[in-house]
């Protein structure tokens, strides 16, 4: 593959991934986590998100009422912990269902094509 093609594929992949960011983040926040710990967890599970993207996303999700946050000042450094709200949990479950159907349908399409 030429460099150009590689770039092109990477662009498409990151576009695909962008749509799944919210589900990825919500999935890890059934228990409270602070931003950097969340980034590390996601990376360890093979879904790396740049902190420069993750942190603003956490704010946005909080503003939309999917997450709640709390400053934890007991430790050595003050840290902001985020966790799913009631609404957030409902929405996360719905998103999971949507994702599964979408993935199934897409797999059907791809597999038909491969036969």
């Amino acid at each position: 593959m030429s460099d150009e093609q590689i770039d092109f594929v990477q662009g498409l992949v990151s576009e695909l991934r962008r749509g799944t960011l919210t589900i990825s983040v919500l999935s890890q926040l059934t228990s409270p986590k602070y931003g950097y710990a969340l980034a590390e967890t996601l990376e360890a599970k093979g879904v790396p998100i740049e902190p420069g993207t993750l942190y603003p996303l956490l704010r946005r999700l909080e503003k939309q009422g999917l997450l709640t946050s709390e400053w934890e000042t007991a430790g050595t450094k003050p840290r902001k912990y985020y966790v799913l709200s009631g609404d957030g949990l409902n929405i996360y479950r719905q998103m999971c269902a949507e994702w599964k159907t979408m993935a199934e349908n897409l797999n059907n399409l791809i597999e038909r094509e491969e036969q």
């Binding site: 931003g35 950097y36 942190y55 704010r59 003050p78 902001k80």
Partner: peptide, 16 residues
């Protein structure tokens, strides 16, 4: 939002 985001980012930079 300034103070809060600044504080959070400071923590992030520290961790990184």
């Amino acid at each position: 939002q300034r103070a809060d985001i600044e504080k959070e980012l400071a923590g992030l930079i520290d961790d990184m």
